[in-house]
Design a protein around this nucleic acid. Structure first.
Lengths: 176, 176
DNA sequence: GGTGTCATGTAAACAGTTACATGATTTT
DNA sequence: AAAATCATGTAACTGTTTACATGACACC
C-alpha cells in the first residue's frame, strides 16, 4: 500500500498542493500515514517524475508561493490500475494483546487496572471517531454513491472500536 | 511497541534460541512481526548488551550449535516495567478502506466485484484464525488465568474478522 | 513578544522486510 | 536429486517518523 496511490486518488477529486495533502492525510482516521512533509513532498516529486502529475506554481503576496498539483491522463490510468488491484486483508496491530500475553507477571489487581486503562483509551478513540463524522475533505461527497461509501468507511472505524469495547467486556467477565 | 519486550516476555516462560523465537513469532497471529532473522538476532544482541538476557552455547552433533537465551533478574525488572506501561490504542491499517475511498472511478459492477473479492479474503483469514486455536506456543497455559487470557486473545482476532464481515454486509446493503 | 498558520523542503534516525550466505542432516 | 529443517548471522533496501531549516503574516 503506497501513499503515492492515495495522493493520486485525492488529486483525482481536485488539484491540491503538498500542504493541502498533508492536512487531509493528518485529519483522516483511516489513512494510515502521519502526513509528514518528507513523505508527501518526496511522493509528489516521484509522481511527477513518472508523469502521473504536473504542477503549476502559484505566486501569492503575503504568503509563500505554492505548487498546485494536477493529475495527468497517465496518472488516471495508473489510478484505475491500482484501484482494481486485488484487495489486501487488514493488518492487526494491537500492542495491548502483546502486553496482555505477558500479563502472567502481574497481580489480579494490576491486570484489572491495566485493562481498565485500555478500556478508557478505546472509549476516547471511539468518541473522537464518532465526532469526526463531518468537516472532512471526504465529507463533500460528489454523489449519492460517494456519500454512502464515505459514511460506511466512517462506520467501519466506529465499529472497530465498538467491537474492541465488547471484547474488553468479555475479557473482564472471563477473568474476574 | 518493541519486539525486544515481546522476546523478554517469551523468555520469561522458558529459555529459547533465536530460531525458537523466530518460529513462535512467525506462527502467531497477534504478534505483528514477520519473525525475520535480522530483527530477532539483532534484538537478542541488544538485549544481551543491556544485560537483560544471557546465553549458553549448546553444541549438538548432526546439527549446528545453538545459543539458548535466558532472562536475567534485571531483564525481569525491565519486563515488569514495560508490562505496566500505559496501554496504547490499536492501529487501524485497512488498505481496503483506502482503496474504497478511491472507488469513484469504478463502475457499479467493478465495485461490487472488488467488495466480493475483499469479502473472500476476510473469510479465508477468519477460517485460518479459527483453526489456529491450538498447537501454538501460547496454548500451553500455565494456569487457569493464563489459559483464559490466551483464549480471549484468540477471540479478539476472530471477532475482528467477524466485525469486518458484518461491515461488508452493511456496505453491500447500503450500495446495492 | 510569543504562538499559530501557510508553504516547501532536507537530514538523520529507526523499524521492518527481502534476500544472501553457510553447512549438515533428514525427508520426499 | 531436490527440498525442507535446523541454526546463526549480515547487507541492502523500503517505509516512516522526528527534527531541522526558512520566512512572511496574523492573532492574542
Amino acid at each position: 500500500m503506497l501513499i503515492d496511490h492515495t495522493i493520486l486518488g485525492l488529486l483525482h477529486c481536485q488539484s491540491l498542493t503538498g500542504y493541502d495533502l498533508k492536512k487531509i492525510i493528518q485529519g483522516s482516521v483511516f489513512l494510515p500515514w502521519s502526513g509528514n512533509n518528507n513523505q508527501i513532498y518526496k511522493a509528489l516529486l516521484s509522481l511527477e517524475k513518472q508523469g502521473y502529475v504536473i504542477n503549476e506554481v502559484i505566486h501569492q503576496d503575503g504568503a509563500p508561493s505554492k505548487k498546485k498539483y494536477t493529475i495527468t491522463e497517465s496518472g488516471q490510468d495508473e489510478l484505475k490500475r491500482v484501484t482494481m488491484q486485488e484487495p489486501e486483508s487488514f493488518d492487526i496491530k494491537k500492542p495491548f494483546l502483546v502486553q496482555l500475553a505477558r500479563a502472567e507477571i502481574l497481580s489480579d489487581d494490576e491486570l484489572k487496572a491495566l485493562i481498565n486503562r485500555y478500556e478508557e483509551s478505546i472509549k476516547t478513540q471511539l468518541l473522537m471517531a464518532q465526532n469526526q463524522t463531518d468537516k472532512s475533505f471526504f465529507a463533500q461527497g460528489r454523489n449519492i454513491r460517494e456519500s454512502t461509501i464515505w459514511n460506511t468507511i466512517q462506520k467501519n472505524i466506529v465499529s472497530s472500536y465498538q467491537c474492541e469495547l465488547n471484547w474488553i467486556g468479555e475479557l473482564k467477565e472471563a477473568l474476574f
